[in-house]
Design a protein around this nucleic acid. Structure first.
Lengths: 146, 146
DNA sequence: TTGCAAACAAGAATCATTATCGTTTAGGAT
DNA sequence: ATCCTAAACGATAATGATTCTTGTTTGCAA
């Protein structure tokens, strides 16, 4: 088994452990869903996860995949790349700025900060990406949700 | 007129100018939609924009609002807070890291960078937010899209 | 083994968004 | 001022992602 395989094994071990901690049954469906997630390097959508899991468990239901993705997120076993994926959120402020995002109520507040404006990656073209803009998301709780 | 009113006026002037530049007719509908966007400090969803515009133009169609929002984005008059709003995108990597996001194909790549890990706002609790995490989004074009 | 709560599957329902299509309108050419 | 054409619009159907509902199955503890 290669280094990647070992890492996946390690993550699956952590999965089992965390399920116990959270009082979750490590069912066959959950195990396959989680392994697919760990093996996927492309930040898949739930739909794509469903497709991949379906290859192994053809009779699995979409609801099971979607519900367990939420379960994993709640248990801290999985994260969302962006918390603002339910609907588009618009910003007519054209100046360079960053955002404060409340993880509970999804409130978004513009945040201007020269210090953050100067953020740059260490490498010139990380992973071959031609980066045109660095944006900082400060995630946490807004005053109302604290 | 207060300072805020003046800023809104300035933005509406810019709107008219940019419409001309882009060969767009500054129709009544577009003007109201854009003014609502500029006046909204809460990064509204298209649906919320539709509701607000409907107060002034009850007979406006959702399609008009949605289409013009795209038109404004294409013309550089408006931005999206997150480009990943069409569907959820999952991340089973629990280590601290950041993301490279291709604005063209929506590819997301994990990016580990100690320099970015140390990013912090200048203020302790900006706008009263209790910030638990800073994430950097490096936006640009992936190797395939360049 | 019995029973109960957790998990599941199937499919309907919802929500946001986009596409289609017929009508209206704005602005340049006449 | 009138005509013409493309751009805009409105109504509404369609799509895609996600969530909800309901009935069934399964894991595990008494």
């Amino acid at each position: 088994m290669g280094a990647l395989g070992q890492e996946i094994e390690a993550r699956m071990g952590e999965f089992t452990r965390r399920c116990k901690e959270a009082g979750l049954t490590a069912t066959h469906q959950r195990t396959v869903i989680y392994r697919v997630l760990v093996e996927s390097r492309d930040h898949p959508s739930p739909e794509l996860v469903y497709e991949r899991v379906s290859q192994e468990i053809p009779e699995i239901s979409r609801a099971t995949v979607y519900k367990n993705i939420h379960t994993f997120i709640d248990a801290g076993l999985l994260r969302e790349v962006s918390e603002l994926h339910q609907t588009n959120r618009l910003d007519a402020n054209l100046e360079r700025h960053h955002h404060l995002i409340c993880t509970r109520c999804r409130k978004v507040v513009d945040y201007h900060d020269d210090k953050l404006d100067s953020v740059r990656a260490s490498k010139r073209n990380p992973d071959g990406f031609q980066v045109t803009e660095y944006r900082v998301e400060a995630r946490g709780l807004c005053p109302a949700c604290r």
